[in-house]
């Protein structure tokens, strides 16, 4: 028997799938000597370029651009690291104990230790394992990323009701998706949402770590990355 026809995806989920950014490459500078400074420089440069992409992506979330410019800024300033990490996590799902910072920049435990990123490696891998166990799908990942942005608990939101409305529409899209695709597990939407505290915790660690690298002043950082880092501390 052919499988029963799948319900069409919710409009929001299909829109988010289309809005998903292209693959990004780290392209380490071949003129830099190998070592921890080079690795961190590569990661900070990658993060800076990804931030530009994330800002463009946010504007494609249905309803985001209707928020005030101030609220758009506040959400991004709160959630950018969660979104960066969630993307690394999703790219790393097909791998075993490796983090795919970019298609051409995959770090294992040894490489992470050498660059002083072992702690962060462990935390992100913990998230990867959670999502692997859930067998998270691309549709769920794109929706969760948008939910993380609107659920960033910024203290500077001007129009709380408008942000709540946007959050509700994304939450509803996730529930509708699960209701159609995962009827076998009525708790699935909840299980996915319950991964967000670990994401928040991991992002906070990452921000602290990169902020201390910034203070040490040995690694060059681009302006947008610095601006977003400073907005978090």
């Amino acid at each position: 028997l052919p499988p029963p026809p799948k319900k069409p995806l919710t409009k929001i989920v299909s829109h988010l799938l289309v809005a998903e950014p292209e693959k990004i490459y780290a392209m380490p500078d071949p003129s830099l000597p190998e070592g921890d400074i080079k690795a961190l420089t590569t990661l900070c440069d990658l993060a800076d370029r990804e931030l530009v992409v994330i800002i463009g992506w946010a504007k494609h979330i249905p309803g985001f651009s209707s928020l005030s410019l101030g609220d758009q800024m506040s959400l991004l300033q709160s959630a950018w690291m969660e979104i960066l990490i969630l993307s690394v996590v999703f790219r790393s799902l097909p791998y075993e104990d490796e983090l795919v910072y970019a298609e051409d920049y995959v770090m294992d435990e040894g490489h992470s230790r050498l660059t002083g990123l072992l702690d962060l490696y462990g935390s992100i891998l913990h998230l990867v394992r959670r999502y692997k166990k859930l067998k998270v799908e691309k549709e769920e990942f794109v929706t969760l990323k948008a939910i993380a942005l609107t659920n960033s608990d910024s203290m500077h939101i001007e129009d709380v009701e408008a942000v709540q409305k946007l959050q509700d529409s994304l939450h509803e899209a996730l529930q509708e998706y699960e209701g159609g695709e995962h009827q076998e597990d009525p708790q699935r939407a909840g299980k996915l949402l319950m991964t967000l505290p670990l994401l928040r915790q991991t992002a906070a660690k990452a921000v602290q770590h990169f902020y201390s690298i910034k203070v040490q002043g040995k690694v060059p950082m681009h302006k947008l990355f610095l601006e977003m880092l400073e907005a978090k501390v």
């Binding site: 829109h15 530009v52 463009g56 651009s65 410019l69 101030g70 800024m73 947008l224």
Partner: peptide
């Protein structure tokens, strides 16, 4: 907001949602 110039500029300038 002066402190967050680049974010402000990118939000105002980058592609509009109707481009999709």
């Amino acid at each position: 907001k002066e402190k967050h110039k680049i974010l402000h500029r990118l939000l105002q300038n980058s592609t509009s949602p109707v481009d999709l």
